[in-house]
Amino acid sequence: HRQALGERLYPRVQAMQPAFASKITGMLLELSPAQLLLLLASEDSLRARVDEAMELII
């Protein structure tokens, strides 16, 4: 289940942060499945989480 969510998330994360897409997707997969579904449904929520992840990385 998580694998399938990751496969759906990755291209969207890659479009926002290509250099760190794998790392960010891995970080996002730590969230609950319900939270992941919310990110897939909301571009704004996904962008906010990706921005948060980038702050942790750099």
Results as ranks from 00 to 15, higher is better:
T25W: 10
E55C: 07
M16S: 03
I58P: 03
V50T: 02
A53C: 08
A15G: 06
P11I: 15
L37R: 08
L37T: 08
A21C: 02
S42W: 04
L31A: 05
R47T: 04
I57H: 02
S45F: 13
E7L: 08
G26F: 15
D51N: 13
G26P: 06
L37D: 05
L31P: 00
I24L: 05
L5Q: 03
I58H: 10
V13R: 02
S45I: 11
M27V: 04
A19D: 09
S22A: 13
E30W: 09
L9S: 01
I57F: 05
A48C: 07
Q17L: 06
G26M: 14
A15Q: 10
L39K: 00
E43V: 07
L39M: 11
S42C: 05
R12T: 05
M16I: 11
A53W: 05
D44N: 09
Q17F: 14
Q17E: 08
E55N: 12
M27F: 06
P18R: 05
I57K: 00
P33E: 13
Y10N: 03
E7N: 06
A4L: 11
A53E: 03
L28S: 03
R49G: 05
Q17N: 10
R8P: 03
L46P: 00
R49Q: 10
A34T: 12
K23T: 11
L29H: 01
A21P: 02
L56G: 05
Y10T: 03
S42I: 04
P33H: 14
R12D: 03
L46R: 00
D44L: 08
L38Y: 12
G6Y: 15
S45L: 14
L56E: 10
A21F: 03
T25L: 12
D51S: 09
L31S: 06
A41M: 13
A4V: 12
L5W: 11
T25K: 02
M16G: 01
A15L: 10
P11R: 15
A34Q: 09
E55P: 02
S42G: 05
Q3S: 09
G6P: 05
L5R: 02
Y10K: 05
E55A: 13
L56D: 07
E43K: 08
S22F: 15
A21Q: 01
S22V: 13
S42K: 07
S45M: 13
P11E: 15
S22N: 13
L31F: 07
F20L: 10
V50K: 00
L36E: 00
L31C: 05
L46Y: 01
A48Y: 13
Q3Y: 04
D44R: 10
A53H: 04
Q17R: 09
R12V: 10
L40Q: 02
Y10C: 05
E52Q: 10
R8M: 13
R47I: 06
P18I: 06
L39P: 00
A34N: 08
R2I: 15
Y10W: 09
L5E: 03
M54Y: 10
P11K: 15
V50Q: 00
K23L: 11
S45Y: 14
L39T: 05
L5M: 12
L46D: 00
L37E: 11
